[in-house]
């Protein structure tokens, strides 16, 4: 039983076959819990949901009776231009439970923006800047009673290296959460990705979030179903599924 989670993730990784480059639970591109400078294709629209292990949640805001709990979020995302990504995310919070254990939920909502001012070149990396919870950041960030569970700013650089048609991606980002309770994820964060030549639709990910290591994999099935599964510290599973459509009618292998 100890390795049950690992077996599930490995099964998912092996069974589920197309491209992903998503920090999927935010509806934008990235790795698992850290942003990258990669972008979705122009015209990509996403709608999906993600199971979030309690160990992935901010330290306050998602507590019930003083304890963290597993939850999920859902989102829509759009890449209107090759250099711009937008998304809108609702994360479920337990508001109350009755004596029968029925849960009443509320939501934490945030919008994300990601801009890629520099595309990747032969000798230099792509660079992107972004912000989660833009609306709150713009209008409410100076009010101490307004919680900014996901509000962060980042700058990321990503470079890919090709060898024998395999693709190795290296990402280095600097991220800053606005509130102290997420400071464990502040500073330099980094990750590597590997896309095998024999199966380029899939991508293996390893990353350091500033506080923990995550391993995972993502892929795009049948050009429309995007999946991501990951583990934090080899123990705690997160997984999500979203539907993806290219509104320009283009088809991509990944």
């Amino acid at each position: 039983m100890k390795h049950f989670n690992i077996i599930i993730v490995l099964l998912l990784l092996w069974v589920l076959p197309n491209n992903s480059k998503a920090q999927q639970y935010t509806g934008t591109s990235g790795l698992i819990h850290i942003p990258s400078a990669e972008m979705h294709h122009e015209g990509d629209a996403l709608i999906g949901a993600h199971f979030l292990n309690k160990n992935m949640m901010p330290d306050i805001g998602f507590l019930y009776n003083g304890e963290k709990y597993n939850t999920f979020d859902y989102y829509v995302g759009l890449t209107p231009f090759s250099w711009l990504e937008l998304s809108y995310v609702c994360t479920e919070r337990i508001r109350s439970k009755d004596s029968q254990g029925n849960i009443k939920w509320s939501k934490d909502r945030y919008a994300s923006v990601k801009i890629q001012p520099l595309k990747e070149g032969k000798y230099y990396p792509a660079v992107a800047i972004g912000c989660n919870d833009v609306w709150t950041a713009a209008f409410y960030k100076d009010r101490p009673n307004v919680q900014l569970y996901y509000m962060n700013l980042y700058i990321a650089a990503t470079k890919h290296f090709i060898f024998s048609n395999n693709e190795l991606g290296v990402t280095l980002s600097y991220r800053h959460f606005y509130r102290d309770y997420n400071s464990k994820w502040n500073g330099i964060v980094a990750g590597i990705t590997f896309r095998p030549a024999f199966f380029p639709q899939a991508r293996l990910i390893a990353e350091y979030t500033g506080n923990e290591f995550l391993l995972g994999m993502d892929m795009l099935l049948w050009q429309h179903v995007r999946l991501q599964a990951s583990m934090k510290n080899f123990k705690y599973v997160n997984a999500g599924l979203c539907l993806q459509f290219n509104l320009l009618g283009k088809k991509y292998l990944y």
Binding site: G43, A45, V76, L78, P80, F81, L86, Y88, W135, F139, L247, L248, G249
Partner: peptide, 25 residues
């Protein structure tokens, strides 16, 4: 508004003298 082949996606912001600011997509 960004018009695609068979779809349009837009974001908007608005203001009025009663409720002040709002936004959406």
């Amino acid at each position: 508004m960004r018009h695609f082949n068979h779809a349009t996606a837009s974001i908007y912001g608005r203001w009025n003298n009663y409720d002040k600011f709002d936004a959406g997509f």
